[in-house]
Write a protein that binds this DNA or RNA. Structure first.
Length: 278
DNA sequence: ACGAGGTCCTGCGAGC
DNA sequence: TGCTCGCAGGACCTCG
């Protein structure tokens, strides 16, 4: 489930293959991922366009094209973005949503089993408005502790839900919210407005640390996620709580617990180290 | 402002 | 074996 570290890994991988290349023969196999654009206009806007720049914003991959449009792909749950330097195998072709040639042999594929992912194609102005609705990038140099506190301010919601609110801070999903809260020894269900400054300092530090470590490990592969070259990530080996219900806490040995009480999403935590969710 | 619940989508595993 | 059903979940929506 690509969150910030996974999309960052994808973008770093595919960027060198796409930048300066011309998109040829785009094929859209499914249309239900399109947002605000028809298949016909997407195809005609992509075909023959040079890719000027590839970047990440929150959990989106952004391809800036010569014609000024941005192709924005959000892989969500099961989406993968891969550049292959060979012909695709049948299994790789299956579930392909968008596919285009980016060189003599290279093919760029957006593949998505469940197709909860989305594709936008935006003009500069629409892009600015789109990105303005998303919070700041947590790994930016400018994202200091004061900024973090300001972004969390004014809500009584559970801290885990607040962290995952893309309008407040960009790119944090379920895996890294769980991990950061455990590492900061914070109860995921704690009301955001009732967390003391020292706890917030720990959370700020651990959040940035875990995101950085996950990028260094090429992301977390639980099931579908692959890097931009089709490899598995390795941060699943470093997860301390996510997916580890029933296993011993690495800090105190207590059996880790899971609940769906916060926003209906799987929360993993240690009763002893993080306290009891209220 | 906030929580609850529905929606999208398909593979998978449990249960019968 | 073959079927149904619930679940996985990020973002967005409506309702109370």
């Amino acid at each position: 489930m690509p969150e910030l570290p996974e999309v960052e890994t994808i973008v770093r991988d595919i960027g060198p293959y796409l930048t300066g290349r011309t998109l040829r023969n785009p094929q859209l196999h499914k249309t239900d991922v399109l947002r605000g654009i028809s298949r016909r206009r997407l195809i005609s806007s992509l075909d023959g366009q040079r890719v000027e720049h590839v970047s990440r914003r929150a959990k989106h991959a952004v391809l800036l094209l010569r014609n000024g449009l941005r192709l924005i792909i959000q892989p969500r749950m099961t989406g993968t973005l891969i550049v292959y330097d060979r012909t695709l195998r049948a299994a790789e072709q299956r579930y392909a949503v968008l596919e285009m040639k980016v060189g003599r042999r290279e093919t760029f594929v957006y593949r998505d089993v469940r197709r909860l992912g989305t594709i936008h194609l935006l003009q500069e102005k629409a892009w600015l408005s789109y990105t303005a609705r998303i919070g700041p990038e947590p790994l930016d140099d400018t994202f200091d502790f004061a900024n973090f506190v300001a972004r969390l301010h004014g809500t009584r919601q559970a801290i885990k839900k607040t962290l995952m609110d893309q309008a407040r801070i960009a790119g944090i999903g379920n895996i890294y919210a769980n991990e950061a809260l455990f590492r900061a020894a914070l109860d995921p269900s704690r009301r955001t407005d009732r967390i003391d400054r020292h706890s917030l300092e720990r959370l700020y530090r651990e959040l940035r640390a875990v995101l950085g470590e996950a990028i260094a490990a090429q992301g977390t592969t639980f099931r579908d996620y692959r890097t931009g070259t089709g490899q598995r990530g390795s941060f699943q080996d470093s997860l301390l709580v996510y997916g580890r219900a029933g296993q011993p806490c690495t800090q105190c040995g207590t059996h880790l617990a899971t609940t769906h009480a916060i926003d209906g999403r799987a929360t993993y935590f240690c009763w002893r180290c993080q306290g009891t969710p209220s």
